[in-house]
Design a protein around this nucleic acid. Sequence first.
DNA 1: GCGCGGTGTTGATCTGGGTCAAAGTTGCGC
DNA 2: GCGCAACTTTGACCCAGATCAACACCGCGC
Lengths: 248, 248
Amino acid sequence: MLNERSLSVSQECAECPIRHRAVCARCETDELERLEEIKYYRKFEAGQTVIWSGDRMDFVGSVVSGIATLTQTMEDGRTQMVGLLLPSDFVGRPGRANAAYDVVATTDLVMCCFRKSPFEKLMSETPHIAQRLLEMTLDELDAAREWMLVLGRKTAREKIASLLSIIARRDASINMTTTHGNIVFDLPLTREAMADYLGLTLETVSRQISALRKDGVIELEGKRHVTVPDMSRLLEEAGDDADGGVFA
Amino acid sequence: MLNERSLSVSQECAECPIRHRAVCARCETDELERLEEIKYYRKFEAGQTVIWSGDRMDFVGSVVSGIATLTQTMEDGRTQMVGLLLPSDFVGRPGRANAAYDVVATTDLVMCCFRKSPFEKLMSETPHIAQRLLEMTLDELDAAREWMLVLGRKTAREKIASLLSIIARRDASINMTTTHGNIVFDLPLTREAMADYLGLTLETVSRQISALRKDGVIELEGKRHVTVPDMSRLLEEAGDDADGGVFA
DNA sequence: GCGCGGTGTTGATCTGGGTCAAAGTTGCGC
DNA sequence: GCGCAACTTTGACCCAGATCAACACCGCGC
């Protein structure tokens, strides 16, 4: 979690992923200076809604720390998570006035935001920003399509294994928490949120997690702390070839 | 279908969606001239594979006429369609060497292609190309996420209705084939392809289409020719609010 | 006209995951 | 430390859609 110190003018840039990854990788000095003018931070507590689908959205931004979800809900209450936002992920769509999805913080969350219209102006004047966003959007599109295979064709057990694989990988790239070869991480989602991501019920999620534990594919400490003794085994359970699959 | 006449140098630009929609909308003359150098057409017959997942892909392009599908296949043969390419849709990913999905022509198909590396160079020199691609990619991402809701949370009947809605709409925007209020179109997909799109079996697709016909939601002439007497009824069956939903 | 392969329909049966219900676990405010 | 609420697990039963099977339709080559 970002402390006040790190939010001071001189420090924040080093901490802000969008500055580094989406906008600033190849920025010149004058662009950096302009960015300062339109940038601000927002903090949310676990459970808080960042924005409701349909609401006016006058900013874009990226996750600095914490986790948020993107969900769609039908009138009768069925909900489907369509994206998981981890640190460095970009939120919001240049050129669209209203949010298309509910964005909800599932942990305490810090976002680095940019007012939209100046951001768009900056983008139109700075070619590599659009290119960087294109690259990121294409990655998201690949992830969404990979997830379509999970939702459409995988069994409940494969779905759980796929989700654990993704979390393990994303988490590893941030925290590098491995203990003598084991991969160790905390589930950032409740069983219900996992169910909404996977197109299952929470009961089925619970049962399949129990089954994977019973079969030694994962180890559980409490409800959330997971150890994966053999990642290739987990990938196999997910129905991916060991060489990549969901991680492409 | 494009005839030879329309492929001559002076006519083709008017017919080529990418030129108009993805690249040329705001091009200057010199850019148009450069584009000519790297542009070529490819034709495919129904059933032909445009490119296999994993193969080297040295072009990007867009569909001029006909329909293609984007599919993923697991080792055991389960397949999931992750995209439907209709005229004007863009194919390929700047900055990636190999195809991520199988692309298959489901009807006779004409594509307008650009050799990739000159296209990328052009893109880096012409800001609005990257911006246009970003816009298109964001639209595709929205479509993919909309489809995640269909795959994860809708019933078989709702899935069929959702697919019919999408085809009706896309088709209408191209052909405007409505007869005194009715929406009329031909299904461009086999029952099996529909099943692969919807995460169902072909038997279930067949049964649900029969059920929708029996209930008067659609009318069928032969296996493929569909009439929708009441579009809002179809949208209701799809589980979308009448105001947009899948069409957002 | 006939046979054949691709496509589509329909029926019978099975089953993975949903639904309903109950009880266990954890953490927090008082 | 108690009580409550949120979260999780587990069991019993059910049903939507898968699977297996048979047959109908249709265009095409001979």
